[in-house]
Design a protein around this nucleic acid. Structure first.
Lengths: 334, 334
DNA sequence: TCCGGTTGTGCACACGTGTGAACAATGCAT
DNA sequence: ATGCATTGTTCACACGTGTGCACAACCGGA
């Protein structure tokens, strides 16, 4: 209807303060050449009019928008959803705005990246994106800094932030050996990234190093239903302790132990320490990747690149820790 | 380093095609006044150069950015996370870009909205935002259309999309009565929105209408740990069937029945039909709000307002349905 | 009075795009 | 040959902002 009621611009502020538009800009940006009383007058005028600068126009002029593209896949996975939340919160705290795209479908991914670049984002954060090669190419073409979360391989010019999967695998092995287990198995995921493979390698290397044997292995996509079908075969291996590449797999495995008729329940360890792991229904021992620190470091890197303080790609490894719960207390679970 | 390698603009395309810049713009936007062969030439040039229009500049000129602000709270709640994922996907399918803000902290909320408006979003979608009054005020001041998801009250000029909680409550009551229950209880949430209250009213009204009695009631925030502390008191009421305002509450209630020493486990119904409800560990009967349709309608409304096809606020009620599982099969659970 | 320095402000341009209006070219009828 | 409609293209401006440069005002010293 009366949509033509104009948005208030810096011009209106200048008019009210009896001053030129450029002085308004300088006063609000803290230019030292502006006298204190005119600055006060400008600020008063801006406040009464409720002036908010148009960040689109500013972005066009300054060639920097304050927008960070975030590419994420599979938000059904609680771990990714939590990471996204932390990213959004921490970007917001640094006055960066996240433009989020979900790239599940392969065709949508290509498209999403193109649109993301069209919006002149200052940086791109990709979270567990399987199609990262296109992203890398697009960011390189557009000269945009790129941070990959949860991947440990990539070209020289992209930043990497990821958990120390090898060390985590070793930690889990030590913990299970301490609890008295002597035969072991691994429940793998189907990552296109090699995250699952690293967890497995760190685990098995330590097992062998300590003189024990791996007696079973299975793999499944990170879907509860599918993992549930695969689980009985893994349980049949008779392993006393099973390390799962992911909490979802671990929950399915626990569910399988309940429905199947087995004499002894193995010790079970998951990965991601999702909220559900702490619930009494599972009380699952799980590796915590320290997502809080991981996301903090990620946005720090992104911001550093944006402000131009440095454009050197960095790679940071985050140390995980183990949240031990009932699922690895051999005696308590008879 | 060599960051001064210029981004290719429409000017470069025009240069390559031996044509003026405005003709490039018209050719790509499908203006019928452009001859077919020049259009083909322009498209070829754009393709070889990999031209992607600068949406920031376009947004400034057209006064419409294609960006939709999404405000969400509490992404830890799997239900919200899932809704956000669907919103992002469906906005993407309509070529709208979601700028996401999390407004958990009250101080951050005010700030987030201001920045959101500064980015000249075309519309705002608020998902279960408790601080909606500020959002309404900001959108009204900025003349931006606003869609509230999962709220059934609001001013005349904002659109509302929400599930029919009263009907869902009645459906649950009918289902439990069918299963043979004769005494009932309700486990309430602490919504600032009145969603939980509606679910309760629809439920109890039907219970009374059928001549039965409510014998218990408890309330908790939507946190597993807190709900777990409250649950035993509710179980002590001896109700044969308990309807929970939320799956999280229901899961806690189920956990409580396991740890406590009770002779008969009540029938339990949750709300949201989260992924976990289908897992065998709980197999929880739950109300499905039909999030797919809800989010579709929401982005449809947003898009309609953006394209200017209509600026009349709409309110749409989504019909829920019941996913019945083992938790309400009286005989199977002895 | 003139000059040079300091301090505060305004003019005009640029960012990359879309679009109304003007204009060149062509065909057709008078 | 001239007027007129049609078709394809270009010119010039606007969107709202930041900023280099010029410039006004003022002061102190010669």
């Amino acid at each position: 209807m009366d949509k033509r009621k104009k948005q208030i611009r810096s011009f209106e502020v200048a008019e009210l303060a009896n001053i030129s538009r450029s002085t308004v800009s300088r006063a609000l940006s803290g230019d030292p050449r502006i006298s204190d009383d005119t600055r006060a007058r400008v600020e008063a005028a801006a406040a009464t009019l409720g002036y908010q600068p148009n960040l689109i126009a500013r972005g066009l002029k300054n060639q920097t928008t304050g927008i960070v593209g975030v590419v994420v896949t599979d938000l059904d996975n609680a771990y990714h959803a939590h990471a996204l939340q932390l990213l959004i919160e921490k970007l917001g705290a640094k006055r960066l705005a996240p433009l989020v795209f979900v790239g599940n479908t392969a065709e949508g991914a290509e498209n999403a990246i193109a649109r993301l670049m069209s919006y002149q984002v200052d940086a791109v954060i990709a979270l567990a994106a399987p199609f990262s090669s296109e992203i890398v190419a697009a960011c390189r073409a557009g000269k945009k800094p790129l941070v990959l979360m949860n991947r440990h391989d990539g070209p020289e010019d992209v930043s990497l932030v990821y958990g120390d999967s090898l060390r985590a695998g070793a930690m889990v092995a030590d913990h299970l050996i301490e609890q008295g287990a002597t035969s072991f198995a691994f429940f793998a995921g189907d990552d296109t990234t090699s995250i699952s493979a690293d967890r497995e390698r760190g685990f098995t290397d330590r097992i062998y190093e300590k003189g024990f044997q791996m007696v079973g292995r299975a793999a499944s996509r990170y879907l509860h239903a599918e993992a549930l079908r695969v689980a009985p075969g893994l349980l049949a291996s008779g392993a006393q302790a099973i390390f799962c590449a992911n909490d979802t797999l671990a929950f399915a495995l626990v569910d399988a132990t309940r429905s199947a008729e087995i004499t002894t329940t193995p010790l079970i360890v998951g990965y991601d320490n999702s909220a559900l792991a702490a619930w009494p229904a599972y009380s699952l021992t799980s590796v915590d990747q320290n997502l809080g620190e991981m996301t903090s470091v990620t946005v720090d890197i992104a911001q550093t690149m944006v402000t131009g303080a440095s454009n050197k790609a960095r790679r940071v490894i985050i140390e995980p820790f183990l949240a031990a719960r009932r699922s690895t207390q051999g005696q308590a679970r008879k």
